[in-house]
């Protein structure tokens, strides 16, 4: 059966080259989780609605349940496992923005991508940005706060780096 045909899929995940066989119909989310053992990316719907499976593909946020593993061949991927100590992640903990933690990876990935585009967002812009992801536990209050605090902190760091000898803004992490 052609659906069962496998291909070798090679990706750079969190800076590391990884390769494994994947049936051509295998979702990227399943490939990351069950072939590469990167189970920090979660699957809440497989329908592109909840955002739990959000990863960065070549720097842009994507729902990994809406991609096939073979589509990611040769591409660069970042998952939550590559976000250790990221200011956004730390801010989530500081702001009590996590309850069950099932949605958290997707939200951190969405928020980091958003802040790269818009380093000094308004509250309304943050609400709009995190509205790509469902969370059933937190009522979003502390998630919005966590993203705002992370933005402020990253902005301050960027200012610090930028101020001494250059006027060019340095994009945050």
């Amino acid at each position: 059966m052609v659906l069962e045909d496998s291909r070798a899929v090679r990706v750079v995940v969190n800076g590391e080259v990884r390769e494994a066989d994947a049936p051509v119909r295998m979702l990227l989310s399943d490939f990351l989780r069950h072939r590469l053992g990167l189970t920090g990316t979660h699957v809440g719907c497989e329908q592109g609605v909840c955002g739990s499976c959000t990863i960065h593909l070549n720097g842009d946020p994507h729902r990994s349940c809406l991609l096939l593993a073979v589509q990611a061949h040769g591409e660069e991927i970042t998952t939550i496992e590559g976000m250790r100590e990221h200011p956004v992640a730390l801010s989530f903990a500081r702001c009590h923005a996590i309850q069950c933690g099932f949605c958290t990876a997707g939200l951190v990935m969405s928020a980091t991508a958003f802040l790269r585009e818009e380093p000094a967002p308004s509250r309304q812009a943050i609400v709009g940005a995190v509205s790509s992801n469902l969370c059933r536990c937190t009522g979003y209050q502390n998630i919005v706060r966590a993203v705002a605090e992370a933005a402020a902190e990253m902005g301050a760091q960027a200012d610090e780096r930028a101020s001494p000898d250059t006027s060019a803004a340095v994009g945050p992490g």
Binding site: R33, T39, T41, I80, E81, H96, I98, G101, V108
Partner: peptide
């Protein structure tokens, strides 16, 4: 006191173990 949660570190490292992570 509103102390930080002890659960968060594992979650943020992607090291939580949810049912579908067990294989």
């Amino acid at each position: 006191a509103s102390v930080p949660r002890s659960e968060d570190r594992r979650i943020l490292d992607g090291a939580g173990v949810f049912i579908d992570d067990i294989e």
